[in-house]
Design a protein around this nucleic acid. Structure first.
Lengths: 343, 343
DNA sequence: ACAACTTTCGTAAACGTTTACGAGTCGACC
DNA sequence: GGTCGACTCGTAAACGTTTACGAAAGTTGT
């Protein structure tokens, strides 16, 4: 079923049919209705290849994920919920969403080259943004509009949305300091993901505000995963001069930390206060419940959709690239206690 | 950069260029090399819309996920790893993979209609297959080749790959029976997902083989999620005539069950033996480690890729639709102990 | 030297849309 | 009645490919 068959069936020209379906002006209300009716009856939907070829646009947004990269995939529904909300918004705006999984073993630059050249999407949402990110330079050179989830230090004309990792870290320090902690450890990712730098910056700022000297031995880098968290927990538990608080920039590491504590007899809250990153369903099963930060994933997904479609707006003002930082709200937890008298 | 510009640059016709790039026969080796060289130099990649329009094929496989549905998303990397492997295989065969998230609130049939009509993919891999699945009837009616991950009872000409839920359940029963258990409970999903039926079938078969009568009160349906598992754990812990073993057909429920046990003083292994479903990294952090089943996700992803591409083969024999059941191997765990003398 | 065949390449049509352009009809107004 | 504009629609070109077909050139065989 193509537009010609539909037009023949109605005894009108394909031009009129096309105009009707795209509700362009200048088509008689009566014919408009006839066309729409026949289209739904015959189940006609415009072929995407023909349409994109002619219009030079595909009405599709690409969401690029790194399938081998553990940081953004581990252990919860972050992406599913965000995708869900984003997809919903895009569908309202008559856009389609495709997820483009970039294999971890692949060269991401080569992967993007293909995506760009094939002209399969009108714009891209990038994830797992690195502090220096070659993909950004590449996309900036191409003319494909894009945005990133997570900012980067690589310059380029693009929009971004980032979680307020710095604010979260700073607030975490404030909360533990308020309870009397002075020896505050932090677990950071061991790779170049941008969030690690912002989290560390907030941590340092918090310490400075509290007049606490930085102890490099309390800044510990581990993979962002349960296993990484386990290693982190073991390390902390085994330190001679144990910290009294531990801040985490990822929720999946929290599970590992708790497991390691369980094996070493350290008790979260009593021995070491814990502040995890994002609140998620899994945390209901950690005992004592870790203090953490709440993020509205639905709102984030919608905002991603809005931002990426803004890039495509013909209105110069709207399509201008901009950055946005999403705040998170503090959620208290039993893992947060004053340091023991002995410490 | 389109094929015309490339041809002009080489002073040959676009026909020859196209033939060279798709290595069709009948092009001089020398020109072939020139074309290939110029193409990489100028970064030419064929526009997908033009190509699909002409060929009627997109060289793209769609992977449909349900974003609102908890069963196939909760709490681990199942999909990421499978996607990764599948993507790798497809890339080797010069196919692209796109993930098509179907919003939970959307009508899946309408969603598929769009996908089909727009002609955006050459074949589909469906997930979260239901026992009676309207999508299958719809796809069977359309001419789009497809396969499902998880079989369905809805008839239709399609291939499927399913995990051996029945075998796992049966083996689980055998393992606990071997230790002396007779009162064996099972947690099943509370919706129409096909796996629930197969798991139950295996459970019943296992009981029959052991000569154990079925007790309907031991067949408990809960949502496939941590929260559902929590509820399941509470229910079991609160039963007057407590079962001595509990079989689970989803790993995410295991976390919830353990949490509920923790709150109610029931100890896995000592009070109730547990057999979880799929081994995953999260389980390292459940204590005592649950017995479970090992699945090679990489192999599964590759197999999905092979199977879906087979559908597209011109060879009648290869493209014939077929079903395949993937076995899982038993992994012992400390959650599995003989029943206490008292019971 | 000519026919017949092979190798290589150019030409043009086709895929299904959208849209610029022009043609036709109708009513209003002078 | 003729001019003008508004409204509606049909025609055809264009998007970038692939491929059937035929042409040109070269090769072989007689």
């Amino acid at each position: 079923m193509n537009i010609r068959r539909l037009a023949d069936h109605l005894n009108i020209s394909i031009g009129t049919v096309s105009r009707a379906l795209n509700n362009r002006p200048g088509v008689h209300p009566e014919t408009l209705e006839k066309v729409l009716k026949a289209a739904t009856e015959l189940g006609y939907v415009a072929n995407q290849s023909g349409r994109s070829l002619r219009r030079g646009a595909t009405n599709t947004i690409g969401f690029v994920i790194e399938t081998g990269h553990p940081a953004h995939q581990a252990g919860d529904q972050f992406f599913y919920v965000v995708l869900d909300a984003m997809n919903l918004y895009l569908a309202e705006q008559r856009y389609d969403l495709v997820v483009l999984p970039c294999h971890s073993a692949d060269d991401p630059v080569e992967f993007l080259s293909r995506v760009i050249a094939r002209g399969i999407v009108d714009a891209l949402v990038m994830t797992a943004t690195r502090r220096v990110d070659h993909r950004i330079a590449q996309l900036a050179k191409s003319k494909l509009p894009f945005m990133t989830l997570g900012r980067s230090e690589t310059p380029g004309n693009y929009s971004w949305i980032d979680l307020d990792f710095e604010g979260v870290a700073r607030r975490s320090v404030q909360e533990v300091v308020k309870l009397g902690h002075r020896r505050i450890a932090v677990g950071l990712p061991d790779n170049d993901v941008a969030l690690g730098y912002h989290y560390k910056a907030g941590y340092l700022k918090g310490l400075a505000e509290a007049g606490i000297a930085v102890d490099e031995s309390l800044i510990i880098r581990v993979p962002t995963s349960e296993v990484g968290g386990f290693s982190l927990g073991k390390q902390v538990a085994g330190m001679a001069d144990q910290p009294t608080a531990l801040l985490l920039c990822s929720e999946v590491t929290a599970a590992g930390v708790y497991a390691a504590f369980g094996e070493t007899g350290v008790e979260a809250g009593r021995d070491i206060s814990i502040v995890a990153f994002r609140e998620n369903p899994l945390m209901r099963f950690l005992n004592p419940a870790p203090a953490c930060f709440r993020l509205d994933l639905d709102a984030l997904g919608t905002r991603l959709g809005e931002t990426v479609l803004d890039l495509l707006s013909p209105d110069e003002e709207i399509s201008r690239r901009r950055g946005e930082i999403v705040p998170l709200s503090f959620v208290p937890g039993k893992s947060l206690q004053p340091p023991r008298a002995g410490s």
